[in-house]
Amino acid sequence: MALTIGDTAPDFEAETSAGKISFHDWIGDSWAVLFSHPRDFTPVCTTELGYMAAINGEFEKRGVKPIAISVDPLDNHEKWFDDIEETQGSRPTFPLISDTDFNVAKAYGMLPADVAGDPTDRTPAQNATLRNVFVIGPDKKIKLVLIYPMTTGRNFDEVLRVIDSLQLTAKHAVATPAQWQQGEDVIIAGSVNAEAAKEKYPDGWKEPKPYIRIVPAP
């Protein structure tokens, strides 16, 4: 069964461009973004890794660790990083997993269990399902799953926006409306009854409908 929100992110050990890691230990008390790539030297993914490298500081400010995954061997990763730096202007400093045995891809439901063999013999099209984004909390639970087609580059500004919402709503009993950006008004969660809401928000709230209670972001 495919992994979904609320599931525990599978733990694993893997070789990466930054050395061997044990995933849950590597996350520690941080948040993490795991995003997958069909193969090294693919055009859309080259732009994605370059953009992630350029905005890595935004993730660091939020206590989030990015980590990427591809089935290619480590020596290909370093050569690809050279291409990314040359064409995109930024070199990734976050780890890129070398999933040559497909174990991580299978654990996360991105490749079928019967996939085997030399990963460099597989085409990107055969690995088209390796285009996922998983946001994982410090509790090692999956908070977000996004799946993209090979022809559409991922919007990592949106991933940051969702992380802002996740981190806010993890601390406060609120939800964020459509198109919400950090600092904008939020919605009192439905789990907060009227009495508790009055105690928490003595100045009241906007209420276009009884089930829509709008307050400033905490």
Rank of each mutant, 00 (worst) to 15 (best):
L74K: 10
D75P: 04
N76T: 06
N76C: 04
G89N: 12
S90F: 12
R91W: 11
R91Y: 09
P92N: 05
P92K: 01
T93A: 14
F94C: 05
L96M: 14
D99Y: 05
F102G: 02
A105E: 02
P112R: 12
V115P: 03
P119I: 01
Q126G: 07
Q126S: 05
A128C: 09
A128D: 11
T129F: 08
L130F: 03
L130N: 05
N132H: 12
V133G: 02
F134V: 01
V135H: 08
P138R: 03
K143H: 11
L144W: 01
L146N: 07
L146S: 09
I147W: 00
I147D: 11
Y148E: 04
T151H: 06
T152G: 00
R154P: 09
F156T: 08
R161A: 15
I163D: 02
D164H: 07
L166E: 07
Q167W: 04
Q167M: 09
H172P: 01
V174W: 04
T176W: 01
A178M: 15
Q179F: 15
W180F: 10
E184L: 11
E184N: 14
I188A: 04
I188N: 00
A189T: 02
N193R: 01
E195F: 09
A196S: 06
A197D: 01
E199R: 08
D203E: 09
K206N: 10
P210K: 11
Y211R: 02
Y211F: 15
P216K: 15
A217N: 10
